[in-house]
Design a protein around this nucleic acid. Structure first.
Lengths: 352, 352
DNA sequence: ATGAAAGCGCTAACAC
DNA sequence: GTGTTAGCGCTTTCAT
């Protein structure tokens, strides 16, 4: 009835070779004659062999070191959530001899040099795998080229670099995300409305995904509300910590018939703050469940947040990497997360 | 630098006893003299011993059989999704010697006797753990009492039975869910609107969670739109397969000022169908990503779906059960899933 | 009651 | 190249 799992020993018997040879074929360790390789492969093709991970880790008695390259979690609550996801995954995987270095590899999300430094450090530590959130497009390219050359497997999350040779990208479809934002910001509004896209404190030159969101946003209007298409205004705003910021916001908010604002990053709360100060009512759509965003969502200054679930993205990333290293399982090239709509009506169910 | 983990062998040496004795003390298997027990415990008190779970599962070389009690997946797409979640979890856990019986334990979600039969079968098979979606409140009570008495651990999902002694319940907060539905169905509508709550083909007597949804729905109006509170109408509709159904729907749809309908189950599509037939425009809110619901969502007859994520619920349930049995980790008593809002604007991102 | 030893399935070192 | 074998840390059986 319940046939026992096939063991390497069984394969060896069936193929008429020794366990060692089967192991060598399975792991492509070389030093096997063509004849023996074929004998083993023939058996392998007929059966459905699943290695016993438990026995493997116990037998190998070795540890793997992964490395995660993300922005400093202490600088940004969003990255704190990614960090938490990494830690969760680490706890699950510890029993398989997997450790994760992340602590000394934080970078400043606004300093390209910082990212570059860290990527070099990460590479030089010769890890068994890398998970990275590569915010800087150009600096990433060379990093990933080096990794590919050194055969170090790596997975990206949050930000995709199409040109990279990554095992997998985990994140959302930025174009669709922008389209959804457009729909949320304009639903129920008249075609005379004007809308603003706000990129806050980001180097657009490096942030491909912000441009994609912008395109998705515009595309929605081009298709569904062509008359309104000309009423879309794009603003690149400075660091909200700087003095120029409120003045820049004044410009934005002085637009006539401004009925909606889309903040392309998780900084919607700074805009909500400005609306609050001025006692203005403008539909506001942004990203992510940061404490401040949640507060403004509950008080009605932010209407919708699109949840990117950084925690789960990071966790999935580490898991995929571990699955690949431990079991050789290739993850899907792209794992696109759902665009979760958060409003004041369902936010509570998302908070533990 | 990296001190090796303490092994049972080390403890044995330190305590001056054999490995076997240490193991017996560790697992309280008895047959150890007071003297030996104390020697071991003294050592244990001084060190920080963490058993190697990998080695433990490999050494034990035993299998655990879990059992899942759910409605027949072939009768209902919703339960098919739960089923898929179970199968996914099973694939992950196979390496730990966990197998799951589900195939011959389906019940008919509309037949209490069928549920009872299956619970008896499940119990008699003496599994190591049970995952159940207990749709029938009264019949569940005795089932879970028996399980508790026999020390068989069990976890509930989808439907909670507060009185049970379950290790964990995995699902959504029905009250909040009803409240969210009320908000979605009424947002942007005038206070003169009338609304219908539709329970389709369910024995309310047994379905606590439907009543909770209803209460949440009403509670929203009581608090936020007291004037509209008297405009809420509750309907218990028959099996949509029966001839009476369209006539019953006529009654519902003849309500004056009917501006919104809330279907408390995943059957919103049958209502959408009736609306479509009559070419009526009424805001419709329901549950779950069934194919037909998705179609009507895309064509605009359904406005919002609340996603219960049955796949993930079931998967989480099995995982928790396995974690408990394998590692002794107690899951949280309640694991409440987020209320995911699905509209035509983000549905695509949810479909793979 | 206790210790010794044979696995569990796989890896890796070592002979040949 | 190939087979053999000693672990990995724990469980479990079997003498004693």
């Amino acid at each position: 009835m319940k046939q026992k799992n096939i063991r390497i020993k069984d394969i060896a018997t069936m193929a008429g070779v020794s366990e060692g040879t089967v192991d060598r074929v399975l792991h492509k360790r070389g030093k096997v004659s063509r004849a023996a390789t074929e004998k083993v492969n023939r058996v392998l093709a007929q059966i459905d062999y699943t290695p016993n991970l438990i026995a493997r880790t116990l037998g190998a008695n070795r540890t793997y070191r992964l490395v995660a390259v993300i922005p400093d979690p202490s600088l940004d609550e969003y990255w704190k959530q990614s960090f938490d996801g990494i830690k969760e995954a680490e706890a699950d995987l510890a029993q398989f001899g997997i450790t994760i270095n992340v602590d000394h590899l934080y970078y400043n999300p606004h300093k390209r040099e910082s990212f570059q430094e860290v990527t070099i450090k990460a590479f030089q530590s010769k890890p068994d795998g890398i998970l990275a959130a590569p915010l800087f497009y150009h600096a990433s390219i060379s990093f990933f080229r080096v990794l590919s050359e050194s055969k170090i497997p790596y997975i990206l999350f949050n930000t995709n670099i199409e040109e990279s040779n990554t095992l997998s990208f985990i994140g959302q479809d930025s174009f669709l995300s922008g389209r959804l934002a457009a729909e949320l910001v304009s639903i129920g509004q008249t075609n005379e409305s004007h809308y603003g896209i706000l990129h806050i404190y980001e180097d657009l030159n490096d942030s491909v995904y912000l441009k994609e969101k912008e395109q998705g946003f515009k595309n929605y209007f081009a298709i569904h509300r062509p008359e309104t298409s000309r009423n879309i205004h794009v603003f690149n705003l400075p660091d909200p910590g700087r003095q120029e910021f409120p003045e820049a916001m004044n410009q934005v908010l002085s637009l006539p018939h401004l009925n909606g604002l889309f903040v392309s990053t998780s900084k919607a709360y700074v805009v909500a703050h400005e609306l609050h100060k001025r006692n203005l009512s403008v539909r506001l759509v942004g990203y992510d469940l940061l404490d401040q965003n949640i507060n403004y969502l509950k008080t009605g200054y932010i209407h919708f947040l699109i949840h990117q679930n950084p925690r789960r993205q990071a966790k999935t990333g580490i898991r995929s990497l571990a699955n690949y290293i431990l079991l050789g399982k290739k993850p899907p090239r792209k794992s696109l997360f759902p665009l979760e709509i958060i409003s004041r009506y369902n936010i509570d169910s998302y908070l533990n």
